[in-house]
Every structure is written in structure tokens, then in C-alpha cells.
């Protein structure tokens, strides 16, 4: 039986198995989320660090004021989700590059997944269950609008 030998320079034509190409979507995600994150994070840094007294003005009342506005709740939620997944996927790439032992790699990838899921769940719960005017707290620590409630 004659064996066909392909030209050494023939393009690799092996079909990958069916199903979602997760690596491709990961590649697209890094670029798409990166552009959105540039806008979200530059806006976050501008409003929190450059406007007014910057970091000196950040306290509970400042956060309470921001998160009483759905605009900033959505802004921060988007930033949280996009950034944690972008960062987690970046860390995954680095672990895949440098962790040569299968066990080490699995442990590190598992730790990244746990961290990403935990931070997204925690952060989302904090943004949407947050009370800017907790009962029994000194009024001078709270946003000014709490007094009129």
C-alpha cells in the first residue's frame, strides 16, 4: 500500500474537535474587556483620586454618596466583573507558561478560580446590599443625606 507523504511545508489541516473554542473567546475577551476597562478604570481613578481632595476625601460618606447612585453601582459592578475575569485569565496564561508540573499547575489554576469567583460574589453582594445610612452610626461618619431620612 502506497503511503502518501505530505509536503513538509503543507499547511496543517487537522480539524480541531467540535465545540466552543474557549481559547479563541478568551483571546477576544482580553481585548474587548481591556478597551472597556481602560475607560472604566481611568474614570474611576479620575473621580476618586483627581477631583477635589482626591484620596484624602475618601471615607464611608464618600462611598455611601457614590453607591446611592445607580450609575456608579453599575459602573463599579462592570469594573469588578470585567477586571476580575480579565486578571484571572491573565494569571491563568502566566501559570500555564511557567508551571511545568501538572500538580502545581492544577493547584495554582484552582486557586485563581476560587479567588476570582469569591471576589466577584463578595464585591457584587457588597455593592447591592450596602446601606449608606446604617442605624446607630454617628451622623458625622455618614453621607449628609442620611440626616433627612
Amino acid at each position: 500500500m502506497a503511503t502518501t507523504i505530505e509536503s513538509p511545508r503543507a499547511p496543517h489541516t487537522a480539524r480541531r474537535s467540535r465545540g466552543v473554542n474557549w481559547e479563541k473567546w478568551g483571546w477576544i475577551y482580553m481585548r474587548a474587556s481591556g478597551v472597556v476597562l481602560l475607560v472604566l478604570i481611568f474614570g474611576h481613578l479620575f473621580v476618586n483620586l483627581l477631583v477635589g481632595d482626591g484620596i484624602k476625601a475618601i471615607d464611608f460618606a464618600f462611598v455611601g454618596g457614590k453607591w446611592s447612585d445607580p450609575f456608579w453601582q453599575v459602573w463599579d459592578t462592570l469594573m469588578l466583573w470585567l477586571a476580575m475575569i480579565h486578571g484571572g485569565n491573565g494569571m491563568r496564561t502566566i501559570v500555564n507558561d511557567y508551571a511545568t508540573k501538572a500538580t502545581t499547575r492544577k493547584v495554582l489554576l484552582g486557586a485563581i478560580l476560587v479567588a476570582v469567583v469569591a471576589m466577584i460574589v463578595l464585591g457584587t453582594l457588597v455593592i447591592y446590599t450596602f446601606d449608606p445610612c446604617p442605624a446607630g452610626s454617628p451622623a458625622d461618619l455618614l453621607p449628609s443625606f442620611c440626616a433627612t431620612r
Binding site: 471615607d59 464611608f60 460618606a61 462611598v63 455611601g64 453607591w67 469588578l80 477586571a83 476580575m84 486578571g87 479567588a115 471576589m119 463578595l122 464585591g123 453582594l125 457588597v126 446590599t129 450596602f130 446604617p134 452610626s137 454617628p138 461618619l141 455618614l142
Partner: peptide, 18 residues
Amino acid sequence: LLVHILDTSMVRISPEAY
């Protein structure tokens, strides 16, 4: 980012903690 989410979560404990 991990640290920043944890420190911001202190708003859920109390104004003093944050």
C-alpha cells in the same frame, strides 16, 4: 485588585471599619 475589593467590602461592616 484582590486587596482593593476586600478593603472596600469593609463598608458592609461599619463606617468605622471602612
